[in-house]
């Protein structure tokens, strides 16, 4: 495992911890899109179907369990926790799941490396992960008041994707036959979705003002 991949995973882990910290200690999920969190839970559930059949490493297994467990518990907190759920911006978080899920499923059925159940599910999870942040970005734009933790959460998620691209470039040059078009293109699309957010994030950081996305 190279340094970019490891840093990417750690950034991903940090983003989840920031979100759990906000939910668990502040007992608030204000500004967090439940739609995005549910999509991530679906992403991990469909991608990690190999969890009990193919062993890669202890690290790999542990991280998969962490991402599965954290994504489902975040969804549980926002939907059912008696205090946390009161802070959910339900009226603002109106993105429809099936606008993203159905096209991703169709695309995975059409474009995949192998037409098997697991392979199609794995491809579906890649396509869905690429666009799963959209409800969150829409919510950020609607929320005039983005708190620090929410801003950091989205920033860390974007940083994780950017580091994965560096990881792929590194692997391409260091490993023989390392070519994965589906992973790369969906990963690139995913990272590009953060471009606008990154721009305003760095602007607010540079000028030392509160993060706010233009309508």
């Amino acid at each position: 495992m190279n340094i970019f991949r490891f840093a990417g995973d750690m950034t991903h882990l940090a983003s989840v911890l920031v979100l759990l910290l906000k939910i668990h200690t502040i007992k608030s999920c204000a500004g967090i899109s439940l739609k995005t969190q549910e999509l991530y839970a679906l992403v991990f559930a469909t991608r990690y179907l190999d969890l009990f059949t193919d062993y890669i490493s202890l690290y790999n297994t542990l991280m998969k369990l962490i991402f599965l467990g954290s994504s489902f518990s975040i969804v549980w907190y926002i939907r059912y926790h008696k205090i946390v759920r009161r802070s959910y911006d339900k009226d603002q978080d109106t993105f429809r799941h099936y606008f993203l899920v159905l096209p991703c499923l169709l695309l995975a059925l059409l474009i995949n490396e192998k037409f098997t159940f697991r392979e199609v599910m794995w491809t579906f999870s890649l396509y869905l992960e690429a666009v799963a942040i959209l409800p969150q970005l829409v919510l950020l734009q609607r929320t005039r008041n983005i708190d620090n933790l929410t801003g950091q959460y989205v920033f860390l998620l974007g940083a994780y994707r950017a580091l994965y691209i560096l990881n792929w470039i590194y692997r391409y040059f260091t490993e023989p036959h390392y070519v994965h078009w589906i992973t790369w293109i969906s990963g690139l699309v995913q990272t590009l979705l953060y471009a606008d957010f990154f721009y305003y994030y760095f602007q607010s950081w540079k000028n030392n003002v509160k993060l706010e996305l233009p309508a």
Partner: peptide
């Protein structure tokens, strides 16, 4: 195989 190379990522 090539399959496992991609799937060692999270």
């Amino acid at each position: 195989s090539q399959d496992t190379l991609a799937k060692d990522e999270l």
